[in-house]
Design a protein around this nucleic acid. Structure first.
Lengths: 273, 273
DNA sequence: GTTCCGCATGAATCGATAG
DNA sequence: ACTATCGATTCATGCGGAA
């Protein structure tokens, strides 16, 4: 097996204990949501979810480097007509473990699950919670710049001298001070809203998120040779993408079927194994 | 003053006590964010925010009709590099008051202004928390339908007779039975992600949200003659829009300057006052 | 080669029915 | 009463075969 790919079959918490302290640059994972994917994972009751997850986040805290980042993709389900609170309770409990809740990205799932109900629309977004161990963390913003949108083209092309010179926007928009820096650029930094569709085609391995989702965060928070961990590997999207991007990667899953599937996927992509 | 418009100058909690129980159909508001708008409201310390807000949500619970809805536009601020937790703590405390946290809409601010920070991107979304007193609440979904995506335009325009007549999809795709229902349809229900641009004119009153934001929720949760309340009126966007849409409206603000401004805005739109 | 069309597939949710 | 299962509902996407 290549030293750059490490796959573990077993309980997440147990397998994590085999990893060294401060050895991981980025944790990107999508744990089984409460009561979802029952067929594969047995399901976790919403009431027990926080209690079940906290020992794992404790281990993740240990293995993450001081300047590393933990991105948690999660969404609370509707129970009895109401949104469950296990996600927000989890945030509060993780803070007690020492985690800093630094940001919340929104993943807008353009092709959300269809359906119609008398008092609810389709749920078409998920949380990408960012946690860190320290206020200073590695972030390579230039790696994820995007083509400038039309609004900026229009907004900037007729910029008045007043606009360019004023120090602070009167309305506190944050546009004022450095506005002239933006003229002539065609790339801008993205926002904390990510628009992607899910990919679930006729393939045997149906990922819960598209490859471009971990790709975006791997570019943003790691450099080649850095270590990317997914403690709930599933079909291995995070690991495959990380490896393709020249990062080292670690994957853990309790289901033999997923463990074997990911091994096969690496083989089929002609990676040493 | 028209009986359809009631504006109160004073402390939110005090003024709310003048309203009858179960008399409001929709509460739509954007309270002063913690430590923000210091000049206008004196600012509320993030640590004290929940404590400060809970007596108000208690009164709001009292005045809201059993089948009414409370939409709370709020976003936690970043303090010392970390997201504050007062919003999620507020949700948990409001549940203890009897509120149901039924949904969380995302307002994607499409034209949030550029800016650069070393470890943070532009924040281009806000929470719109939906609370209800009862699982059964009024919701007029048909009022907010949107244009169908391209897929339907292409697929359905030349629907074959076989498609129109077949009872059950041969392969059980789940779409077969009622596919003929789609012929001629060009509107679909929206999702819980709302895409709107911010409006911020150079006027002295810079609205915290565009008119289309309260408009969307007023359409969704009320009918003409229903009562729409904004206990943190500010520049009065909610009230103006509600009145324009034939709803009764109640606005409260502690700042005389806002109170007078909203009165003037109603006057300038030639409403009886 | 391109475009068009059939089709399967979703981290879903509600209400009714069954144990 | 309380939980488990099932059918009905809905729409964006990419694949693959056909025109």
């Amino acid at each position: 097996m290549s030293n750059n790919i490490k796959l573990y079959l077993g309980d997440c918490k147990t397998e994590l204990s085999k990893l060294s302290d401060n050895s991981v640059d980025l944790i990107f994972t999508s744990p089984p949501y409460a009561d979802q994917r029952k067929n594969n994972y047995g399901g976790v009751n919403p009431d027990k979810y926080v209690e079940w997850f906290l020992p794992i986040t404790q281990e993740l805290f240990r293995v993450l480097k001081k300047d590393g980042t933990f991105i948690l993709n999660i969404k609370e389900k509707v129970v009895n007509g109401e949104r469950s609170t296990y996600v927000i309770e989890l945030i509060l409990e993780m803070k007690k473990q020492g985690w800093l809740w630094t940001e919340e990205f929104i993943w807008h799932k353009k092709n959300s699950y269809p359906g119609k109900w008398p008092n609810r629309f389709r749920d078409s977004w998920e949380r990408l919670l960012q946690f860190n161990k320290d206020k200073k963390f590695k972030m390579y913003q230039d790696e994820v710049m995007v083509e400038v949108g039309d609004w900026a083209k229009n907004r900037l092309k007729n910029l008045s001298e007043t606009d360019k010179l004023r120090d602070v926007s009167k309305v506190g928009s944050g546009f004022g001070k450095n506005i002239s820096n933006w003229v002539g650029r065609n790339k801008v930094y993205p926002t904390n809203v990510i628009h992607l569709s899910t990919e679930c085609n006729n393939k045997s391995h149906c990922a819960t998120f598209p490859e471009s989702l971990p790709e975006w965060f791997i570019k943003l928070f790691t450099k080649p040779e850095d270590v990317v961990l997914d403690p709930f590997m599933g079909s291995g999207t995070t690991n495959i993408v990380a490896h393709r991007m020249g990062r080292k990667t670690i994957g853990i899953d309790i289901m033999p079927i997923y463990y074997e599937m990911v091994k096969k996927r690496f083989d089929s992509e002609n990676y040493l194994f």
